[in-house]
Write a protein that binds this DNA or RNA. Structure first.
Lengths: 210, 210
DNA sequence: GACCACCCGTGGTCTGACCACTTTTTTAGT
DNA sequence: ACTAAAAAAGTGGTCAGACCACGGGTGGTC
């Protein structure tokens, strides 16, 4: 490293170099980056410093490492970060309830988004519901995917995982209820959609809405 | 480390241990955590592995290390990372839009939550709006705080920081609009509340909506 | 009591050594 | 010549030990 010393830690410099490298070589998701040993040599730094940088990126979900193979750039988009923060912070009791509440909000937001965007084809979706066995999570994953907001999807996935680690319940709803939800969305009827949603979640706060 | 390995990398295990340690010892912002060498010994892992874990946490802004002194827990709300992420990642236009969109959704969700919970005293809030100069962020921070969902608040803060790293603008809205929003909430009128909200947001993103 | 040199603990970095695993190359057998 | 087994090479994962640079405490000196 070019004797830039002072203040900046080596692993930070490596991150910058890496960013530069990715930018210059136009590396994209799935592409391979140089091996730790090669980076260490090319940048004139110790391998351990390179690893510190890579491990940080890995934790951020920016790269993926496969033993024996190499290190690859990962699909960025959302941020991993939230996951970490939440696992770190959410130890309190109230937190559990917040998770559930937030997950529901996100789900409703996505429904609103779907209605707002409108004009989707739900035929394949409907036939999927008809044909296969599926979990609530799978259903909403597909649904939220359609809303086309990758960040919301990320957050939702995290909340879902959290939910699983908090509770073990995995209630199976009836196909009919899911069908109703889809139909309500198709009809672009917000009122019906949210009602159908709460029918699925069938619970505590039936009053809110409007 | 209890040779549980397989799949899980050591530095990930260290992170878990660290989280546990922080939880058990009730460590807070500013508290010091054991030295790298001590951790290495206590967990029966190499110091370099400990460092990989700590470096990742540092990049995330969760801890702060001072050479010659030690490592300290930091008040989250970190940005560090966000700066990096933004320059590193979010080049795509769609992602930026997702951030904005998601932030708006979260804000609206909190408004709904406030209405749902109802019966708050907004007098002090109103007088605060009247008296001081404040930014949009400050306003919504206080607002979302009232909604009493810590997770939503956390997510919002992250999105806010992201926003700042993406754009530099810091438009000032009129006090009147904020007053209207508060009044609508007080009146427990969802319709008016959302309208008032969009009045606030309208200025910048007038087009992408509806 | 005030000041300063020294030592020790701490993070920062590098090197070299293994291990486990995957891919590639070489080798041996048919 | 072809194929399958074996060896080699390459890669990430981890550890141990060695320095360096810096901060704070210790104890001596004035």
């Amino acid at each position: 490293m070019t004797s830039d010393n002072q203040s900046s830690k080596v692993y930070i410099e490596i991150l910058k170099q890496l960013r530069e490298m990715i930018s210059v070589d136009k590396l994209k998701s799935g592409d391979k980056i140089p091996s730790e040993r090669e980076l260490s040599e090319r940048l004139n730094v110790g391998r351990s410093s390179v690893r510190e940088a890579l491990r940080a990126l890995e934790l951020l979900g920016l790269i993926e490492t496969r033993r024996g193979e190499g290190t690859y750039i990962k699909d960025f988009h959302g941020n991993q970060l939230i996951k970490l923060l939440s696992t770190f912070i959410l130890q309190e009791e109230k937190a559990k309830q917040d998770v559930i509440e937030t997950k529901h909000f996100i789900e409703m937001d996505c429904l609103r988004l779907l209605l707002q965007k409108g004009n989707f084809n739900y035929e394949d979706f409907k036939s999927w519901v008809e044909k296969d066995k599926f979990s609530d999570d799978e259903f909403f994953y597909r649904m939220i995917e359609k809303a086309d907001n990758h960040l919301l999807l990320r957050i939702w996935v995290i909340l879902k995982d959290f939910n699983h680690s908090l509770f073990i319940e995995k209630s199976e709803n009836k196909k009919k209820d899911y069908h109703n939800l889809i139909r309500a969305i198709e009809a672009n009827d917000m009122e019906k959609t949210l009602t159908a949603y709460w029918k699925l979640r069938k619970c505590r706060f039936s009053n809110d809405r409007n």
